[in-house]
Write a protein that binds this DNA or RNA. Structure first.
Length: 423
RNA sequence: GGAGAAUUGGCAGAGUGGUCGAAUGCGGCAGUCUUGAAAACUGUUGUACCGCGAGGUACCGGGGGUUCGAAUCCCUCAUUCUCCGCCA
């Protein structure tokens, strides 16, 4: 949720920057400002009615204490109308407040000036490319066929137990999975992140805190008997550990990492996008989360991007980095760098990581604050990045490291998985 | 799952209907003393919102209610602790 002060102070800038997303927010912004005016006037009116009420109550108290019962009873009679009025004002006031909040919640984050304008993924900006795309002298297979050929993933078994989008990893596939998780966590710890094991279900407040609710409830699995949700990413529990906190500036940045399964309903997906490991209802991921002060968040984002680069290099995968255009940017992000690995067999790039600076958008919702040098209370900036999402990594390894009779495990990973080849 | 107790400011802890945004202690900050530090002493010290300001409003786990008036009474939810039961 963007700060209303930002709209009050820089209306034009807010509207202009949102255009980068292909969004014309001008009428919403005007509406918010208009309601904000009314809200302030109503608050003054309500406060003075309450003040009057408080004063009379005090007087009555004093009269009773002095034993002047008759006068007190007299004063009581006068409160009825005033009480009714302040109750009406309270209702009107909170109605206005709700209306403003609803509008504010619907406004996505303001893109950073570096975000290119554009509507679709074709407008994303490639800012870095590394690694050689292998050319195979044999008939290279896509990962879903390789997975079956070497018996590392069982698609049908997952369908039997649960449904489509819940594959079962077997044998060397399971060990690869486990090794990757440990590898990513160790790398994150080396980079200064604290490892957490968070809950994999969250309550409603947490959903609101990071921005999954009220908008995207359809994307989460909802446990209605207990009003809990399965996490779509461990970003949600990790960031929410800080909800409502007032942190010391010297403790920033706070860097957290966690492994978790991620659950996504992915309603509306179809076709080649969901083939094999490309899009699942349950997948494993190691996530990085950070809370920083406002001045250094972009330096921290750069460091996060460097960290992810290092991982892909150790996995010996050809990759590139995109700066997402406005139209492709998630609701909560001010800027996002996507990492994509080239899938040789599918002849397409697959998103493998996404690193975002959310600036104050989540911190404002969850009131995550720190005090700066001058003693002013400020909202933190929050950042998040995947390091990394496992299925895409496995797809990348299978497809790019295949030869005619097996798959070579990247050297850095061998100590973690305990074998050099899948065959 | 059953029974009981509890939830107050950074922490500890008092407060059972009015003068309570809330005693007291610890901690924090500023000062006195000291070459410096400690100790002692003095003062100060919650947050948010509205207002140019004076000032005002809200907040004692969350939500609702009773009352002229609620930290205090009632309802409800959550959490914590103790005992019993069950269990990896």
């Amino acid at each position: 949720m963007i700060e209303i002060s930002r709209i009050r102070e820089n209306k034009e800038e807010v509207v202009d920057r949102l255009k980068v997303r292909g969004l014309d927010a001008s009428s919403d912004i005007e509406k918010i400002l208009e309601l904000d005016q009314q809200w302030r006037a109503k608050k003054q009116e309500m406060d003075s009615a309450l003040a009057e009420m408080n004063k009379i109550s005090k007087d009555i108290g004093a009269l009773f204490q002095q034993g002047k019962k008759a006068e007190a009873e007299e004063a009581k009679k006068k409160t009825g109308e005033l009480k009714e009025r302040s109750q009406t004002l309270k209702t009107e006031f909170s109605d206005l407040e709700n209306e403003i909040n609803t509008l504010l919640l619907n406004i996505p984050n303001i893109p950073n000036p570096a975000v290119p304008e554009g509507a679709t993924e074709d407008d994303n900006e490639v800012i870095f490319e590394k690694g050689e795309i292998p050319s195979f002298g044999f008939n290279a297979l896509p990962h879903w066929d390789l997975a079956t050929k070497y018996d590392v993933i069982d698609w049908e078994l997952g369908v039997k137990v649960t449904g489509a989008g819940f594959p079962i990893y077997k044998n060397q596939g399971a060990r690869l999975q486990r090794g990757l998780i440990n590898f990513f966590l160790d790398e994150a710890i080396k980079a200064g992140y604290s490892e957490y094991v968070p809950p994999f279900v969250i309550n409603e407040d947490s959903g609101y805190g990071t921005g999954q609710l009220p908008d995207k409830e359809g994307q989460m699995y909802h446990i209605t008997t207990d009003e809990l949700y399965l996490i779509p990413t461990s970003e949600v529990p990790l960031v929410n550990t800080l909800r409502g906190d007032r942190v010391k500036k010297e403790d920033l940045p706070i860097k957290l990492t966690a492994y978790s399964p991620c659950f996504r309903r992915e309603a509306g997906s179809y076709g080649k996008d969901v083939r094999g490991l490309n899009r699942l209802h349950q997948f494993d991921k190691v996530e990085l989360v950070m809370a920083s002060d406002q001045e250094s968040s972009y330096d921290e984002l750069d460091k996060m991007v460097e960290h992810v680069k290092g991982l892909l290099q150790k996995l010996e995968l050809p990759y590139r980095i995109l700066r997402l255009c406005g139209g492709d940017l998630g609701v909560t992000a001010a800027i996002t760098y996507d990492f994509e690995v080239y899938s040789t067999a599918q002849e397409r790039w697959l998103e493998i990581s996404s690193c975002s600076n959310v600036e104050t958008y989540q911190a404002n919702r969850m009131k995550l604050r720190y005090k700066d040098e001058d003693g002013n209370t400020k909202l933190c900036h929050t950042l998040n990045g995947s390091a990394l999402a496992l299925p895409r990594v496995i797809a990348g390894i299978l497809e790019n490291h295949q030869d005619e009779n097996g798959i070579k495990i990247p050297e850095a990973l061998v100590p973690y998985v305990g074998f050099e080849r899948i065959q």
